[in-house]
Design a protein around this nucleic acid. Structure first.
Ligand SMILES: [Mn+2]
Ligand SMILES: [Mn+2]
Ligand SMILES: [Mn+2]
Ligand SMILES: [Mn+2]
Lengths: 220, 220
DNA sequence: TCTTTCTTTTTGACACTTCAAAATAACGTG
DNA sequence: CACGTTATTTTGAAGTGTCAAAAAGAAAGA
């Protein structure tokens, strides 16, 4: 069975790959994402290539094989179901469940996972709006763009909020920047690196670009 | 933070120590209990002694320090609360929760543990009848003897059933050999290595001595 | 007491995951 | 195209947890 370290590398590779579909993920990017030095990634990726989870092209980058993608989706399913379980059943805040799930995702058996899935009524999205992969590996894909790349004057629905910054999630919740919320982008100020939005039924607020990159929007 | 390996050694040391209170646990016994070779235990125990969790007397054995016992009780609390949670909230069978808890006990944060504790109404015993240590380290202790050491003709209450043999737990449940059950010991046949019991409201059954050692009885 | 047996410790090795620092390859700019 | 910059790989080392096999110590019999 894959170690939790391997599961985390594979999962991260999957999400990095989503950012630029089809392309190889450069080693340095994965190193940043995993918070290790580049040499560590080289070592790890060679091992993952030997076990058939990734295709490695030296000095170019790495991508998941079909088997690697299957594993990534299984881990992601565990992670996201656990997050939703922690919010719904144990009443934790959406800002604190990511770190918990990062550990629990490696300790949960298939049996327990199935029970959680049933208890929650076979949910399709986690508390941050990310789709929960099905047991058979299917995932709902939705066209999204980040708030940072949105167009002033248009309306959107918040599809998903990046889940790894606890502080930001607390801020987002206070302002109603949650999945499902309708927003109007009032103006994006390139020079000031800021975006102003009006949130339906709530107030108005202005975010810096780096925060705006954490909010993912779908049309209408 | 202690690794899960360390937590398992400390927990095991605690339960071995309960078997013969006050005495040192010999290295070989711990090696058997942890299913590793004796040399591995020597190495590990030296490291644990360096970190102040155990007192090690070379060629004599090992015992927990106060700090080690505190850690053991914390791990045991996590283990047993998780077991009860899996049975009560997720509906798993008592015969399958031990192995699950053996992993989950290392992945659960204090916060999640507290929520589980509250959800279950601050329970005091796990599904197998073992006491759940309180967060402050208190544990209910009860005088018990094993069914193997019981006296023919007397009546007892089942206090606890050893939880690590799934097969046996399924058998025990089928026959009503569960914590709280009243039993009469009909006769213990030394030669045949067998004990016959009558279970209140259920039938009668005969167990071999090694099985009888897995059932713990309290008076009346 | 001497010898055999059992337990424990030591030694050397390996798998895994990581880092720091040096070496190398590729890239882009002039 | 040469040069400097940046990305990647290599090398050597460390920490953790494990095993196999040899060595040492303690216990038990003869
Ligand atoms: Mn998450
Ligand atoms: Mn993780
Ligand atoms: Mn148990
Ligand atoms: Mn464990």
């Amino acid at each position: 069975m894959p170690s939790s370290t391997v599961e985390d590398y594979i999962k991260r590779l999957y999400t990095e790959q989503q950012q630029a579909p089809g392309e190889l993920v450069p080693m340095g990017r994965l190193a940043d994402a995993m918070a290790v030095v580049p040499g560590t990634v080289t070592t790890m990726i060679k091992a993952l290539a030997d076990s058939g989870l990734v295709e490695y092209e030296p000095r170019a980058g790495v991508r998941l094989t079909a088997g690697g993608e299957r594993l990534a989706l299984h881990v992601l399913r565990r992670h996201r179901l656990v997050e939703l379980f922690l919010v719904r059943t144990l009443g934790l805040d959406w800002s604190e469940v990511h770190d918990e799930a990062e550990e629990l995702e490696h300790a949960i058996s298939e049996k327990v996972l199935d029970r959680i899935d049933a208890l929650l009524g076979h949910p399709t999205v986690d508390p941050h709006g990310s789709p929960i992969p099905r047991a058979n590996g299917e995932v709902a894909r939705e066209e999204t763009l980040t708030l940072a790349a949105s167009h002033a004057g248009r309306s959107y629905r918040i599809a998903r909020v990046a889940d790894s910054e606890s502080q930001f999630l607390q801020y987002a919740e206070r302002h109603g920047l949650v999945p499902g919320a309708q927003i109007d982008v009032e103006n994006t100020d390139e020079a000031a690196e800021a975006v102003s939005v009006r949130i339906a039924g709530r107030g108005q607020c202005t975010l810096g670009m780096s925060a705006a990159r954490r909010i993912f929007l779908a049309s209408v």
